[in-house]
Every structure is written in C-alpha cells, then in structure tokens.
C-alpha cells in the first residue's frame, strides 16, 4: 500500500513544485515506484520542471471525468523507469476536481505505487483543500522569511484541523552567509516558532535555477542542494539522516560543536 504525500506551503513561489519534482525523482531513484500529481489546475508547472511538457496528451481532469483511462494520462519520466507524472489541466479551474474525486484517485493509485506525491496549488482555498483531501501526510515548504513562515503556520493549522497531523517542514533557500551575519532566521528559530517537525533544509543554490532551466531535477547531480534533497528522500523512507552542514567553510571548531550538538 502506497503513501500519499502532499507538498504544500500556503505562500506561492517558495519552491513547492521544485521540491515535488526532486522528491519524486529521488524516491524513484531509490527504487520506489512513484507518481507525481500536479494538482495546480489551471497553472500547470510540474511538467516543465520535470522536462516532460512535450509529452502531455491527457491530464488529471480527463482522468477524473473518465475521459481517458488512468494509464493513458500517465507520462513516464525521461530518466527513471518507475517515475510517472499525472499533469494538471491547463484550461480548467480549481473546481474541476473535487475532494471525493481526489480521495478516490489517491486510493486507486495507492494500490500500484509506493509513493504518490501531490504538488498542491498555493493558497488555502478550494484548490488547496481538494489537493489535500486524499493525502496521508503533508510536507510544508517554507523559506526563512516572515511572510513564508507565517503562511506555513496557517497551512499547518488547516492541515491539523482536517486531521493531517503528521506533517513535516522543509526550509528552502537558506543562505548560510546571511544566517551567520544575523540577517536571516536560522533553522532552529523557525522550527521553534512553528513547533513542527523538520524534514530537511535546502540551501539557496543557483544551480537549482540552472537545472530547472534544463528541466532536470537537481537531485540527480552531486551538488549541495542535490544532496539536501537526497537526505530528505532518505528521511521520507524512514532513515535517520543528520542535517546537511550549510556552513561548509566553517572552521573545525564550529563543525565539532555542531557534531556534538547533533549527536
């Protein structure tokens, strides 16, 4: 029986889609059968981040409305045999799929896939509620900014109210240099304020933009953010993995201190 994970954030532009693409790719690279669902109906994006935009024939709405079979709508990934994308409809609105339909689709997919990763639209309105309806757990993505953390808090509150209590947080776009100077909230601050479990941290990395330009998730490359996503995937699979050290240029004493603290 597979697990349905919804990637959400409240605020737009914090990296939900990139996170979904990388987690999906990472989990499939580790040998799992994975399906990515783009639930952002009307603002389809996961296909371009995955580099699969030219292969779309049918979409999520076609499947739900039984305009095609599920198998016809699934797009196989370029690089990974056991990774599939179910794209969003681009010409419909958020109301095209309702909560019951989403639940039904998820329970159907659970039979065939190890992980069902849902990329949720921004906001907390109907589109969000529909995307979340079939999920077993949620991953909340935020950045170290007041507005993004505030929205994450709101989303966590709504997830809890709808019975999803096992959600975890990813903090994206951390800049170690700014944290060091005291100009960016650090991981501990955000975790304390939100009172939520941490799933992982991702540095602010230009290479993510480059990889998105190419439509190739960064997780396949051996870069610091690629490693960050790999760690996240391992934690999703239940492994205990220590947090990535973003201050790679730190001196030996700082590293030692961090090691002692994490141990």
């Amino acid at each position: 029986m597979g697990e349905v994970i919804v990637i959400t954030s409240g605020k737009g532009g914090v990296g939900k889609t990139t996170t979904a693409a990388n987690i999906g790719t990472g989990l499939s690279m580790a040998g799992n059968k994975v399906i990515l669902i783009d639930a952002d109906i009307g603002l389809r994006n996961l296909d371009v981040v995955m580099g699969l935009e030219n292969r779309i024939v049918y979409d999520l709405v076609n499947v739900v409305e039984k305009g095609c079979r599920l198998q016809q709508a699934l797009i196989k990934d370029k690089r990974n045999e056991n990774l599939f994308l179910l794209p969003a409809a681009q010409t419909r609105d958020k109301a095209a799929v309702d909560q019951d339909q989403m639940k039904e689709l998820c329970s159907e997919l659970k039979k065939d896939f190890d992980y069902i990763i849902i990329d949720c639209p921004a906001g907390i309105e109907q589109g969000f509620k529909n995307a979340v309806a079939g999920a077993d757990c949620g991953i909340v993505v935020t950045t170290p900014e007041v507005s993004a953390v505030r929205d994450a808090d709101r989303v966590i509150g709504i997830l809890e109210a709808s019975g999803l209590s096992n959600h975890r947080l990813i903090i994206n776009r951390i800049r170690a240099d700014m944290v060091k100077k005291g100009d960016m909230m650090d991981v501990e601050d955000i975790i304390e304020i939100l009172a939520v479990k941490l799933l992982g941290i991702i540095p602010d990395d230009e290479k993510i933009i480059v990889s998105t330009n190419r439509g190739e998730p960064i997780i396949a490359n051996d870069t610091i953010s690629g490693r960050a996503f790999k760690n996240i995937c391992r934690r999703i699979s239940g492994e205990e993995v220590p947090l990535l050290d973003l201050h790679e240029k730190d001196n030996i004493f700082a590293k030692l201190r961090k090691f002692i603290r994490s141990g």
Binding site: V146, M184, M185, I193
Partner: peptide, 15 residues
C-alpha cells in the same frame, strides 16, 4: 539588533 531578531519578534507577534 540583528534583522533576524527583528524578524523573529515580528513573526511571533503576528502568529
């Protein structure tokens, strides 16, 4: 004060 301290304070209040 560091701007991160200001951010934390404002965030706490707003939450």
């Amino acid at each position: 004060p560091d701007s991160k301290e200001v951010a934390k304070e404002r965030l706490r209040f707003v939450l």
